[in-house]
Simulated scan of single mutants.
Amino acid sequence: MQKITPFLWFDNQAEEAANFYTSIFANSSITNVSRYPEGAPAPAGSVMTVTFILDGVEFTALNAGPHFKFTEAISFYVKCDTQEEIDEKWEKLTSGGGQPSQCGWLKDKFGLSWQIAPPVLGELMQDKDREKAGRVTAAMMKMTKIDIQQLKDAYDNK
C-alpha cells in the first residue's frame, strides 16, 4: 500500500478530472467515488471525493469549492521514453483548454501542472562535459514540448 497519496483540490470537477486523467495513462482506473451526505457544505449526493490510480499511483480528488487553485509550485513529472510518448501525452494533456509552457511544462484544462520529459534530458544535462550539457540546456530552454532529436543534436553540436 502506498503511504503518500497526492490529494488534489477541485472546485467541482473531481470526477471529470479523474475520468480525464485515467483516459490518458495506462494501468489507470477510478477505484472509489464518495458523495456528500445530507447536511454537508455541498448538495447531498454530489461527488465529494474520487480515488483513482494513474499508472499504478493512487490519487484522491476532492470537490471543495473555489477556495484554492493549482499553481506551478506543484507539478507531476511524467517520464516518456520516446518522442511518440511525449507527443501523445502532450496532446492529450493540453486538449480541451490546456496551456503549453516552457521546457516541457504544461497546464491541463483544470490548471494542474505537468512536466512531460524523457529521462535522456536529465542524462544529457548532467553530462560531465559541461559544454555539451550547456548546449542541451540552452536547447531545452527554447522548447515548449520537448523534442528528443533536437536535444541530441544540441549535444552533438549539430
Rank of each mutant, 00 (worst) to 15 (best):
D87M: 02
L124P: 01
Q115S: 01
T82N: 05
N12L: 00
N32I: 12
P43Y: 03
G39W: 04
Y77H: 15
R135N: 01
A117T: 12
K142R: 13
D81C: 01
G65H: 04
Y155V: 07
F52G: 08
W90H: 01
Q126F: 11
S101W: 03
K152A: 10
E88Y: 15
K145D: 07
S75N: 11
D11Y: 00
G111L: 12
A138P: 09
P100D: 14
E38Q: 11
I86H: 08
A64K: 03
A18M: 06
T31F: 01
V120T: 10
Q150K: 15
Q99C: 14
L112Y: 15
N19Y: 10
K3C: 12
L112H: 14
A26D: 15
P41R: 04
N63I: 00
K109N: 04
S23E: 07
Q13C: 10
A139I: 08
I86Y: 09
I146R: 00
G134P: 06
K69T: 14
Q150Y: 11
C103L: 06
S75C: 09
K132F: 08
W9T: 11
Y77A: 15
P119A: 09
L121K: 08
T82W: 07
V50N: 02
G111R: 02
G122N: 13
A138K: 09
A61D: 06
L151S: 11
V120E: 00
V50F: 05
E88W: 14
V47N: 11
T60A: 01
T137H: 07
V33Y: 06
A42I: 10
Y21R: 05
T71W: 11
M125S: 09
E88L: 13
I146E: 08
M48G: 10
D81S: 13
I74A: 10
L106E: 04
C103Y: 01
G97T: 13
Q99M: 13
L54P: 01
A44C: 00
V136F: 00
K132L: 02
E88F: 15
Q102E: 14
I116M: 08
A117H: 05
A14S: 01
Y21N: 03
K145Q: 13
G65N: 01
L121G: 12
W105E: 03
G104V: 07
M48T: 02
A17V: 07
T82I: 02
L93V: 05
Q115C: 06
V57D: 05
A17P: 05
P66A: 15
F110T: 08
S113A: 12
L62C: 06
P6V: 09
M48W: 11
A154W: 00
F68D: 08
W114Y: 12
P119C: 03
I24C: 03
S34G: 13
N27G: 03
